[in-house]
Computed example of a mutant assay.
Amino acid sequence: MMNIKEAASRLGISARAIRFYEEKGLILPAKQSSNGYRTYTENDIWRLQTIAALREIGMSLQDITHALGEIDQGNQQRLEEYLELQQAVMYAQWIELKRMMETTQRMIDLNRQDGPLDVSHLHDLADSARRLREARQNWHDRWNYDTQAAIHDQRVQAEGRVSTEHPNSEGRYHSNDTVQSSFYLYHNYDEALEQTAHWISPALGEKGLDIGTGTGNLAGKLLQHGADMTAIDQSREMLRRCRTKYPEMHVKLGNFLALPFADHSFDFVVSSFAFHHLSPDQQILALQEMQRVLTSRGRIGLTDLMFVDAAHRESYIRQAETTGHQEQLNALRERHFPLLGELCSWLEQQGYVTKHVRHNELLHTLLAVPLR
C-alpha cells in the first residue's frame, strides 16, 4: 500500500494527474476508514501505468475508459483494435505533416527562383494542399460495412442476384430473400481475383498488402501463393471474419488515405472492389499512399469497376437514363468509378508500366510495375 505522493513518485506523474483520473472514474483506490486518505495497491499502480501509457500515445479519455473495460474482461482483440485505431490516427497526422513540409519546401523553392515572385503560385500551392487535406479528412463509410460483414461472402458469390435485405431503424439487415438485379457489383468476381493473384504472382515470402480487404478473399488467394499477407479494412466486423477465415494473416484496421505502415514496407499492394468508394481527389491520395509503402520495385494490382474513358462513362450514363435503370444511376451517384485511361496515365507518369484486362462491361484488373 502507498499514499498518493508515493504513487506519483513511483509512476513519475503528478498527484494532480492521479486525482484527475480518479475524478473521471478511471481508477477507484480504497480509502482508509480512519482518515479517508486514499491508498494505492499494486493493481492500482498497474492501472495508472496503463492509463499513462495510453495517454502518452494520444488516446482520448473516452477510448481509455473503453480500453480499460476490455482489459478488465480479458478481451485482447478489442484492446488491439483500440490501439490500432489510435495508431491509424497517428499515421494520418504524420502523413499530413509530411505533406505540409513538402508544400512548404516547394514554396521555398519558388521563392528562390530568379526574377520576381508570382505570389499567385504560393496561393495555388496552398489551395492544392488544402483540397488534399480536406479530401483525406472527409472520407467516411457511407455504406456501413460493419452491418454487411455477415452476408458479404454470400453477396459476392450471388452472380447477378442481390439481397433484398434493407437495414431497419437499428441498421440491421432482416431478410435473406434475393432478387434478380439489373445492377450487380460482383459479376466475374472469382475470375477477377484469380487474375489479380496470377499477375501479382508473389514469390515465396514476399510481403503484400490488401487494402479494403473485406473478409479477405483476395488476400487469401495471395496467401495460398506463398505471400506474407497483411490485410487492412476500416470495418471491424469485416476484419473479424477475415481473421476467422485466415488466422495466419496479419489483419489491421486502416484505410486507403493513411496506411498505418512505415515507408517501403511491402513488395506489392492490391485492392479489389474498394477503390471506387473514394472520390477522384482521394483516389490520387490513395495511389500516393500505395507508392509510399511500396519498395522501389513494388507493384500495384487494382481490380475494380472502371470506365475505359470519359466517352465510355457518358455512353453508360445515357443508356441507363434511356432505359430507366435507376440502380445504375444510383451507383454512379454514390460511387466514383475511375477512368482506366487516366489511372494508367497517372501511373505511367510515376514511372510504372501498366497492363489491364477487362472482365465485363465495367470490371477491370490493372497491374502496374515500376520500370526502374
Results as ranks from 00 to 15, higher is better:
Gln283Phe: 11
Leu285Pro: 00
Tyr246Ala: 06
Asp141Gly: 06
Arg241Leu: 13
Gln349Tyr: 00
Glu165Thr: 11
Thr303Ala: 12
Tyr82Glu: 14
Gln87Glu: 15
Met100Gly: 03
Arg78Glu: 15
Ile300Val: 10
Gln137Arg: 15
Leu79Asn: 12
Asn144His: 15
Val156Phe: 03
Leu302Tyr: 02
Tyr246Ser: 07
Gly226Trp: 05
Asp263Gln: 08
Thr303His: 01
Gly58Glu: 15
Arg16His: 14
His66Thr: 09
Ile211Cys: 10
Gln87Asp: 15
Asp210Leu: 06
Asp233Cys: 01
Tyr37Asn: 10
Arg38Pro: 12
Ala15Ile: 06
Gln62Trp: 04
His66Tyr: 11
Tyr184Asp: 06
Pro29Met: 08
Phe183Cys: 07
Lys5Phe: 09
Val119His: 07
Ala258Phe: 02
Ala262Ile: 02
Ile300Leu: 01
Asp124Tyr: 12
Asn3Glu: 11
Trp94Gln: 15
Glu314His: 12
Ser182Val: 04
Glu165Asp: 15
Leu11Thr: 09
Gly220Trp: 08
Leu239His: 04
Arg333Ser: 10
Leu363Asp: 01
Arg358Glu: 14
Thr322Tyr: 08
Gln157Ser: 13
Gly12Gln: 12
Glu348Gln: 15
Gln73Leu: 11
Ala368Gly: 05
Ser279Ile: 04
Leu302Met: 02
Leu371Asp: 02
Ala331Lys: 10
Val357Glu: 13
Asp177Arg: 15
Ala274His: 06
Tyr316Asp: 05
Ser14Met: 11
Gly351Leu: 02
Glu327Val: 00
Phe261Ser: 04
Ser120Tyr: 10
Asn330Asp: 14
Met2Ser: 03
Asp233Ser: 08
Arg133Met: 12
Asn360Trp: 08
Gly25Lys: 08
His277Val: 02
Asp177Pro: 03
Arg318Pro: 00
Ala150Asp: 14
Thr41Gly: 07
Arg161Thr: 11
Gly205Glu: 07
Ala197Ser: 13
Val308Cys: 04
Thr322Leu: 11
Phe261Arg: 01
Thr147Asn: 10
Glu70Ile: 01
Ile4Pro: 09
Glu327Pro: 06
Leu239Gln: 03
Met101Gln: 15
Ile232Asp: 00
Met1Arg: 08
Leu329Arg: 08
Ile317Phe: 07
Ala149Val: 07
Tyr82Trp: 15
Ala331Asp: 12
Gln319Gly: 00
Met2Trp: 09
Trp139Thr: 06
Trp199Cys: 04
Gln350Cys: 05
Gln319Lys: 13
Ser265Ile: 00
Leu193Gln: 11
Glu194Cys: 04
Asp109Cys: 01
Leu287Thr: 02
Gln137Tyr: 05
Met1His: 07
His276Asn: 10
Thr295Ser: 03
Pro370Asp: 01
Glu348Pro: 11
Val269Leu: 01
Glu342Trp: 02
Gln137Met: 12
Ile300Trp: 01
Gln87Val: 09
Tyr82Ser: 13
Gly115Leu: 06
Leu28Ile: 13
Leu83Ser: 13
Glu70Val: 09
Ala53Leu: 14
Met1Gln: 11
Gln326Val: 13
His250Lys: 14
Gly301Cys: 08
Arg372Tyr: 07
Arg172Leu: 15
Gln105Trp: 06
Thr196Trp: 01
Thr104Arg: 09
Thr213Pro: 03
Ala227Ile: 03
Gly115Pro: 10
Gln49Tyr: 05
Asp124Cys: 05
Glu84Pro: 01
Ile71Pro: 02
Glu22Lys: 08
Asp263Cys: 01
Leu253Met: 10
Glu159Cys: 04
Arg10Phe: 11
His225Gln: 14
Ala67Trp: 09
